[in-house]
Simulated scan of single mutants.
Amino acid sequence: MKRRKVGNLLALAILSTLVERSMHPYEIASILKARGKDRDMGIKWGSFYTVVRNLGKHGFIEAVESTRDGARPERTVYRITDAGRDEMLDWLRELLAELAPEEPKFVAGLSVMAWLGPDEVISLFRTRLAALDEEIERSRGELERLIEELPRLVLLEGEYRLAMRMAEAEWVRSILGELTSGSMPGLAEWRAYLAEGGSTRS
């Protein structure tokens, strides 16, 4: 993956919004929230204005006018530059075509879960599976509702997120089956190791 001058995904979200037309930051943020981009891109709103400033600093956006409504703070309207458009398209092509290392927190937990006992892991997996099933049901309903109002093209990120959650739920369910049935290879050794003091947990 290329090292970018403004690497926060929020920058991509801002650029992709300004491609439509010039607008001030408050309007950009409102549109991103309305479209659920904070969920799609893991946006942290505390860094929003810093990212806007950095995009301007590197020539990806530029101010076109400043307006003031009564006693309210001055609002600067920005537009995307040619450099910003090129950056957005290059970044988008990279994200769609190239594999990037992703390290979800769940994977980190799996990598050291052996320090917990099998019974506790079973309980935790059941809790996770219940949450997954609830999220899947909610997301499926939301997609079914939105597909009646919007073209599928703009809902693909929701489809992908749902597919990933469904795959995760299927995998968690299969591991739970192995743990509860006792068919998981090494399960007896895992229990024995912990029983001999390998961890403070049983």
Rank of each mutant, 00 (worst) to 15 (best):
T67I: 13
L96I: 15
S66W: 01
K33F: 00
L18N: 04
A83R: 12
I31N: 04
E65N: 08
A130Q: 12
P25Q: 01
E94D: 14
E27T: 09
Y78A: 05
V51D: 06
K37Y: 13
L95Q: 08
S22K: 11
A71H: 14
V77K: 06
S22T: 05
F60M: 15
D69R: 02
I43S: 05
S123V: 13
M113D: 10
L99H: 13
R85Y: 07
E65I: 00
L18V: 08
M88D: 01
R85L: 13
D40I: 10
I122W: 02
I122C: 00
P104A: 06
R35F: 09
P25K: 03
H58V: 15
D69P: 00
S111F: 01
L12I: 01
A71D: 15
E94A: 12
P104R: 04
A97H: 08
L89E: 14
L116D: 09
I31T: 09
I43Q: 07
S47T: 12
A114H: 13
P25E: 05
A34Q: 12
S123P: 10
S22A: 14
M41N: 10
K105I: 14
L95R: 11
W115D: 11
R126E: 15
R85E: 07
A13H: 03
W45K: 04
V107M: 13
G46C: 03
G42W: 10
K33W: 00
S66A: 15
S66C: 11
L15W: 01
T76P: 01
T17F: 05
V121Q: 07
I31K: 06
I31G: 01
R39I: 11
T67R: 10
A130I: 01
L96P: 03
G36K: 02
E20K: 13
A29E: 08
A97K: 08
V112Y: 12
A71K: 15
Y26T: 13
R39L: 11
R128M: 10
A34Y: 08
P73F: 08
K44R: 14
E27R: 10
L96W: 09
S30F: 11
G59H: 02
F48M: 02
K57W: 08
R126F: 07
I80M: 12
A97P: 00
M41P: 02
F125G: 00
V107I: 14
L12Y: 12
G109S: 06
K33H: 00
S47D: 11
S66Q: 15
R128S: 04
T127Q: 10
G70H: 12
S30E: 14
H58L: 07
V107G: 00
P118N: 04
S16L: 09
L116S: 07
L116E: 12
R79M: 08
R128E: 13
M88W: 08
P25D: 04
D40R: 11
L116Y: 13
K37N: 08
R53Y: 14
K105S: 14
E87Q: 09
G84R: 01
R79Y: 07
L89W: 10
V19L: 15
H24C: 05
N54V: 02
L18H: 05
A13Y: 02
R35V: 00
H24L: 00
V112P: 03
K57T: 12
F125N: 06
L92T: 15
I80K: 06
L12H: 08
I80H: 07
H58N: 14
M88R: 11
A130Y: 08
F60D: 05
F60Y: 15
E98F: 05
R68P: 10
L92E: 14
S66P: 06
M113L: 14
